[in-house]
């Protein structure tokens, strides 16, 4: 760890990791697979850091590596759902690099906003994320229609977005002279 280049790679990777994680998650749709691929991306980033041009932004470079690792995982594992075309993947990678910084600012409020989620929506979130259940299984457990479960999760996320925007606006109001 005394090598400055390695330290720099660690730091840059840590900063880029939330966006890379979200990108991989959107492409593979599976938590475990996302984490396996992220480990491969991290190793590839460390191994190829010498080829990174420090005068250019790090995140697009890391997202390029992530796309390769997702493609490698597809080849190794055979087919897994690929909802986006290659052109859409490239467009999403570019978009991710553009929005990353602002979104990290917003997501700093996520924990607070999650605490506001209660009742049945919270129960569904817990089954989905902590329990790792598929939506149709959640519907079965709770005696609901799968579509209702899906819509409830969407509403929760929209509420979270609204809550985050509210917090951002409040903070901007406080910091205004």
């Amino acid at each position: 760890m005394s090598d400055p280049r390695t330290r720099q790679a660690f730091t840059l990777w840590t900063q880029a990791q939330p966006a890379v994680s979200a990108f991989v998650f959107a492409l593979v749709g599976d938590r475990r697979l996302r984490d396996e691929i992220l480990q491969d991306v991290a190793v590839a980033v460390l191994e190829s850091i010498a080829s990174y041009d420090a005068s250019r932004p790090f995140l697009p470079w890391a997202l390029g590596i992530a796309r390769n690792e997702v493609a490698n995982a597809r080849r190794r594992r055979g087919r897994f759902p690929a909802p986006l075309s290659e052109a859409a993947e490239a467009s999403l990678a570019a978009a991710m690099a553009e929005v990353e910084e602002g979104e990290l600012d917003r997501l700093a409020f996520l924990d607070d906003c999650l605490q506001r989620v209660g009742g049945r929506p919270r129960e569904i979130c817990d089954l989905r994320y902590r329990g790792g259940l598929a939506l149709d299984r959640i519907a079965q457990v709770l005696g609901m229609q799968p579509n209702t479960v899906s819509k409830t999760l969407q509403r929760v996320r929209e509420q979270l977005r609204a809550c985050i925007e509210e917090r951002m606006a409040a903070q901007a109001g406080r910091s205004r002279p």
Partner: peptide, 9 residues
């Protein structure tokens, strides 16, 4: 949206 999904997860 993808960043929100991943962060919630």
């Amino acid at each position: 949206l993808a960043m929100l999904h991943d962060a919630v997860d």
